[in-house]
Design a protein around this nucleic acid. Structure first.
Ligand SMILES: [Mn+2]
Ligand SMILES: [Mn+2]
Ligand SMILES: [Zn+2]
Ligand SMILES: [Zn+2]
Lengths: 153, 153
DNA sequence: CTCCTTATTGATAATGATTGTCATTATCAA
DNA sequence: TTGATAATGACAATCATTATCAATAAGGAG
């Protein structure tokens, strides 16, 4: 999945009847570069360095749009603010889940054991959608605990 | 796990050096009675009916304490407010997970397929704690999608 | 390229959930 | 019963997120 310049993103916006604006380009740029989970404020500051006109409101608005478009994933790790990352389909990254440290709030991505997970999920999703008539679109798996650094203290 | 009156709870508080107060008794009472996930405000209103002196601040404070004590579990289903339920060890309820409808925000508990889950988790937790030196204490599994009622619309 | 429609922006105010302050009250060990 | 002090409740403050609205700029038509 090559991204030739940002023309790829332009098309995604225009295909949906949206305009491709500088704030949108820059927000996506920040998300694409960072391999971490960024808050709206994080993104605002990053963009602000190179485009000091950006408004925090615009960041929120576009993150919401990007989540709706399926381009960005939104997470709540329990610290009161939402975190965003490019969704796997966009970033070319593997599907992954999260380890959340309850001491330092650090979040570790992991993509191991995905075979075991895939097997588990396909089994369970089928059963659940049958029993509860629930059409599953997505899932979240978070493990909470203590990270290595926090253990040695 | 019988709860003879509320003496069981009294002991839990006093064991930790805390006092057993009326607000605490009533908050736990509401949580124990309800089989749903309640917000702080929900709990406030429920308690308020029978004890109109209660303050919302007190509800928040005690929910935090109860979460720290492990008596209550706190969830974020993505609607901006936290939800609380008696933790399984307290309620005697089975371990369960959640189906979250993205249309109507309804949350369905499910406790099916726990064998498959147990197998999956034990496999994965072992691997993760080894590879990432991460000491897992808890996990959350949420499925997002469309509930039966919302599908027929 | 220029013009025009209107989607989008950014400043600002508003909201809603949660937390901090502090004087008053009530728990419970002695 | 009493006293030390944990806990409460009213209130103000904070923090993340949303709503408003006039000004701006994207991009299709000509
Ligand atoms: Mn991630
Ligand atoms: Mn539940
Ligand atoms: Zn840590
Ligand atoms: Zn629904």
């Amino acid at each position: 999945m090559r991204t030739r310049g940002s023309q790829c993103w332009r098309g995604k916006f225009q295909g949906g009847g949206y305009r491709f604006t500088k704030p949108r380009e820059l927000i996506l740029g920040v998300l694409a570069k960072s391999k971490k989970h960024l808050s709206a404020e994080d993104i605002f500051f990053s963009v602000h360095k190179i485009y000091s006109n950006i408004g925090l409101t615009t960041v929120y608005r576009n993150l919401e749009l990007l989540v709706d478009m399926g381009t960005v994933s939104k997470f709540n790790f329990g610290d009161g603010k939402a975190n965003y990352e490019l969704s796997e389909s966009e970033s070319g990254a593997e599907h992954h889940h999260h380890l959340v440290c309850q001491k330092c709030q650090k979040v570790i991505d992991y993509a191991d054991f995905m075979d075991a997970e895939k097997e588990f999920l396909s089994k369970i999703e089928k059963g659940l959608s049958k029993k509860y008539k629930f059409q599953i679109q997505d899932h979240i798996i978070h493990f909470y605990g203590i990270c290595g650094q926090c253990q040695s203290k």
